[in-house]
């Protein structure tokens, strides 16, 4: 806890340093759960948990990848495409795909893929507040093969599919402080397992009205921007557990 306060006060000191001069109006908050794209030829180097690099190929298309995951032999790519702008709303397709060509995780060899995608609409309520809403979809199909005593190679295929509604906001406290918050509300999830010993199918959220916090993904963060450099800190709450989120990124 003491370490947290050290970091917190250091951050406050840096955030209010007199040399700060930055502006969100030039580059609004940019993340997976809103519709904003990088500008053409703009690059973003993100030092978060997965260390991603993103690049604006055009005004309407950006691509990216997580360098750290790639180093870990998990090829992956980010894609964001602006679909259309209608008045104060902007709608984009956003996706992140991971490919498992044969990784060993927990002693088992995995092949397959996992992806998350959605169509997010950002609505500018005013110059300070944007609402982000849209359907999100996550899908993974993983095959495992491991040795089982007496049975030789035993194969299992696990398919997980989740549909969720995204409701979030980006709020600009000032020209260099922004808040991002969102909740993912799953409304359909299904698990399919096919194995040599048996198959299983589980509808994970059969009762759509019984939303409990355990089923939701909650995220809140604050971002401080200094022109090209941004620092973000926040928390993610998922499955009864809260994780800290920290990221430092440059937009060049």
């Amino acid at each position: 806890m003491q370490r947290f306060y050290h970091v917190f006060w250091l951050f406050i000191a840096v955030a209010y340093a007199p040399w700060v001069k930055a502006d969100f109006s030039e580059q609004p908050l940019h993340h997976f759960f809103n519709s904003r794209l990088l500008k053409a030829n703009e690059a973003k180097l993100n030092l978060n948990y997965i260390g991603s690099v993103e690049y604006g190929l055009s005004e309407n298309l950006e691509v990216g990848t997580s360098v750290l995951l790639s180093i870990g032999s998990i090829p992956n790519f980010l894609l964001k495409h602006r679909m259309f702008i209608l008045g104060p709303t902007e709608t984009s397709f956003t996706s992140f795909t991971l490919i498992f060509p044969g990784q060993y995780i927990g002693g088992k060899r995995f092949t397959g893929s996992a992806s998350a995608q959605g169509v997010v609409t950002s609505y500018d309520v005013n110059s300070e507040l944007s609402l982000n809403v849209g359907p999100m979809h996550a899908y993974s199909l993983l095959n495992t093969k491991n040795q089982s005593a007496g049975f030789g190679d035993v194969r299992t295929q696990v398919e997980l599919e989740v549909y969720a509604a995204l409701v979030g906001l980006d709020y600009y406290l000032s020209s260099n402080w922004g808040v991002t918050a969102f909740v993912l509300i799953p409304f359909y999830a299904n698990l399919n397992e096919i194995g040599d010993f048996g198959d299983a199918n589980a509808s994970l959220f059969p009762n759509l009205t019984s939303y409990e916090q355990d089923n939701l993904v909650l995220f809140v963060s604050m971002t401080r921007t200094w022109e090209q450099f941004n620092f973000e800190f926040g928390v993610v709450n998922f499955a009864k557990t809260t994780f800290p989120y920290l990221a430092a990124y440059w937009r060049i």
Partner: peptide, 13 residues
């Protein structure tokens, strides 16, 4: 049933 989820299992072997 596991919590509110219903799992249908086809045993093999």
């Amino acid at each position: 049933k596991v919590d509110s989820a219903t799992a249908t299992i086809t045993q093999r072997l």
